[in-house]
Amino acid sequence: MWRRAREWVAKYGVVPLLIAVLVGAGGVVAGNAALEWTNTESFCISCHEMKDNAYAEYKETIHDQNRSGKRATCPDCHVPKEFFAKIWRKTVATKELYYHLTGKLDTPEKYEEHRYEMALNEWKRLKANDSRECRNCHDQNAMSEDKQTPETVDRHTKGFAEGKTCIDCHFAIAHFEPDGELAPEDL
């Protein structure tokens, strides 16, 4: 491999090689910057569908305002932190851009019409990944039983023993629950 590289440099010179390296590095930096920019709350609510619907109902929930001051933003709950999982989620989420461009959710009525489908897709995703995004902030081993009601302690103990994940019990915690009955088999 190095022999070929030396031959190529001897034939064409070092300038094209340096240009290729700089263009490649610039692509990596630009790609990472775009990934980080699209992973901000301000980007998520830049279209009115999200700002006027999902974000409006999220405001003043326990994930927006709470006694600890720790705030969960859209990407905290909807985008994995791990690189390849994040890339996959971002790729799948491009359908949301399609919905924006085609007006699928551009009125409150259309948003409500699709709320159950969107919620169910998100709940299925969280169920499949063992509520990974929830666990980025909430650690089962760090839960303080003295700050929970006895019923909550019992429910958590039972749920963990049964192998349940966060989303099995805690859905519609930052958004309104859609009309329609959620059945465990749906997840």
Rank of each mutant, 00 (worst) to 15 (best):
Q140T: 14
E113P: 01
E133V: 13
S144Q: 14
Q140D: 15
L126C: 03
N136L: 14
E145P: 05
R132D: 12
Q148W: 12
A142V: 07
C137P: 00
K124I: 03
R132W: 07
C137R: 03
C134F: 15
R115F: 13
E117P: 01
L126K: 04
A128P: 03
W123Q: 03
D146H: 07
Y116S: 03
C134S: 00
N136A: 13
R115L: 15
N136D: 15
E122V: 08
R135N: 12
N129K: 03
K124F: 02
R135P: 01
A142N: 07
N141E: 15
N136K: 07
R135I: 07
E113K: 06
Y116R: 10
E133T: 15
R115Y: 08
N141W: 13
E117H: 04
N121F: 07
A128F: 04
M118Y: 06
Y116A: 11
C137A: 07
R135W: 11
H138S: 08
D130R: 07
E133Y: 09
C137F: 10
Q148C: 12
R115W: 11
C137M: 06
R115G: 00
H138T: 01
M118C: 06
D139T: 14
A119F: 01
N141K: 12
D139K: 13
A128G: 04
E145V: 02
C134K: 02
Q148P: 00
M118L: 12
K147E: 14
R125Y: 13
L120R: 00
C134G: 03
D139Y: 13
D146R: 06
M118R: 09
A128R: 05
S144E: 15
L126W: 09
M143R: 05
E133G: 00
S144I: 12
E113M: 08
K127D: 06
N129I: 05
